[in-house]
Write a protein that binds this DNA or RNA. Structure first.
Lengths: 341, 341
DNA sequence: TTGAAAGCGCTAACAC
DNA sequence: GTGTTAGCGCTTTCAA
């Protein structure tokens, strides 16, 4: 068992050495106002002399806060942990917390054992709030935390009527803009490689595709839409192969993720199509910065940095406020034109 | 501020409901022996009924331990955080901790502010021990932790007489084996693309190179060794270009990292050499699984999983034991032959 | 086997 | 301004 070495100086000892009361030392340590400057100096001196460091367990117990928040990655496939998507968010969250006294704790939750342990950790008061990344629709963790009354902010939504505070990209508008761009550049027969429609993000992106077509007076043909079974490149290849055989005349494709787009690209080439000349491809840029593709694709980019910062802002608000109304945020995406599609 | 919602049940309330004393509830919660089965059941019942979760701050304060360890990434270049090298270690550490009641906390330390905050967090008793990844020689963190008496285990060494417990790969032997392999396969003029020699890992790898040559009765020529200014591909390209111009007759190269090897490969090709036919290349496999190179290179692989598990073992030992003698570990590497070099 | 009680080191409310 | 004091909720003797 580790913990503070025995012999670690306490507030009391500092007070004794400085010749003041414990309350005063506490005020100095916490930079509270109402302490004479000379006293403050004397206390600081004693602190330095003794090498005093506050016992955080005692502080938590008495102060009812942990000064820490957890950023949880609930991902059975831990390899995704290394994706630029997540590192970018982690970075932004770290930055947003840098000027606060709040310690950021990253946590991996892969199994039910780990889920249980983390919930006890959080409910036990070791963190004041929780940020959730990569939440799957069927994950029990978000509701466990909500039920425990812990301030929680999610990256993305699980459904249209998400009950937990979230920060999401405007997937619908992003997809709509992408398809509108394709229409603007003269493409007429635009296919869609959708993600699995049991995921809300896939629903939104497909909706955006449809809305853009309808906005242009085109009725979206179901023969132009293929649903991938997941977001992998392989799904993209299969879906695209399917799409070409069904509608060989298509001249553009909207893919619901960068991985699906990469797969679609493979399939198009295998079918002898040139991209973007014969067929233009636009995909979402989920793991910004995007994996290099050749040719570079026009993408819909999520503002990951801002997403991370916003998550922190909402979390801090929830931590301070009384249970005010949830105010989730949906951030705009950006169309990054990289080809002459 | 968050923390346990007001109204969270306490040990005392559980005791009252179960009609027992607080001590008994504590014993049940901690699975301590010496409680009659019927009592235990009654207490469990009350715990469930109330939804009781122990307050971890109180437990820490009274029990002098946190039941948590930190895995710290001290890396100003946070992008490295996503490298397979680190995700592999994180994964192994997580696995090794899964059967313990210890919560793993990943922490990013990028700036001095964050360094200070983390030290206060750790010294404040929020973790029982610390695992350090990616330590730079001049980083103050390891010594700060050691001075505070916190059980600490490092991945790698900062120098030959490392004072902190560490787990390292046997870089010298790995390099020696790699070069011996080149000699065995008939190569005679073997160059070395070294890493920056102010880093201990680079020293070890170069020493292994020299030892292998000496073992074969060859005196290592200094004209065959080039020191990269860092471990980047660009350094590899420069160093290799230098090497070719100096010793155009070389037929093999030992690179001190996979990135240097990738750069060396570029330079060799640029010079019109075929790899591995004209020139065989062996590099260390630092970011296993290695980035795909074409052609696949023979590499020296570090046992990252075992490194992570060993770090946890040593840390748990240091946490339990009295300050017994440090017993660091150096693990063997594996030569992975992928070409016919 | 179990209950009672003494802290763990701090914050915050209240006196002076 | 500053000292004093009452807990925060738990673990851990020590008796019973």
């Amino acid at each position: 068992m580790g913990r503070q070495r025995p012999g670690t100086p306490t507030l009391e000892e500092v007070a004794a050495l400085a010749g003041v009361g414990r309350g005063t030392v506490s005020r100095v340590v916490n930079n509270a106002a109402g302490v004479r400057d000379s006293t403050r100096r004397a206390v600081r001196q004693a602190i330095t002399e003794l090498g005093y460091v506050p016992n955080l367990a005692a502080r938590s117990l008495a102060g009812h806060r942990a000064d820490a928040v957890a950023l949880v990655m609930t991902e059975p496939d831990w390899r995704l942990f290394g994706e630029p998507f997540f590192t970018e968010v982690v970075h932004a969250v770290g930055d947003a917390l840098t000027d606060t006294p709040v310690q950021l704790l990253l946590t991996l939750v892969r199994t039910d054992t780990e889920r249980q342990r983390f919930v006890e950790y959080a409910r036990g008061g070791r963190v004041d709030g929780v940020l959730l990344m990569s939440v799957h629709a069927e994950d029990a963790l978000p509701d466990m935390l909500a039920k425990a009354g812990l301030p929680t902010v999610m990256l993305g939504r699980r459904s249209g009527d998400e009950t937990i505070t979230y920060v999401d990209a405007d997937n619908t508008a992003g997809a709509r803009g992408a398809v509108a761009h394709l229409l603007d550049t003269g493409r007429t027969t635009i296919g869609a490689v959708s993600g699995p429609l049991d995921m809300y993000v896939a629903q939104c992106r497909l909706r955006g595709y449809r809305e853009a077509l309808e906005g242009a007076g085109v009725t979206p043909a179901s023969s132009l839409v293929v649903e991938g079974s997941d977001f992998t490149e392989q799904s993209g290849r299969r879906a695209m192969a399917d799409l070409i055989s069904r509608r060989p005349e298509l001249d553009a494709v909207f893919a619901a993720s960068d991985t699906l787009a990469a797969g679609a690209l493979d399939a198009l080439r295998a079918a002898g199509r040139r991209v973007p000349r014969d067929v233009a491809v636009i995909g979402f840029d989920d793991v910004h910065p995007a994996r290099p593709t050749d040719p570079p694709l026009t993408t819909v980019r999520q503002p990951l940095g801002e997403i991370g910062r916003t998550m922190v802002r909402l979390l801090l608000e929830e931590m301070e406020d009384s249970p005010a109304g949830r105010r989730s945020v949906v951030l705009p995406t950006e169309l990054v034109v990289r080809d002459s599609a």
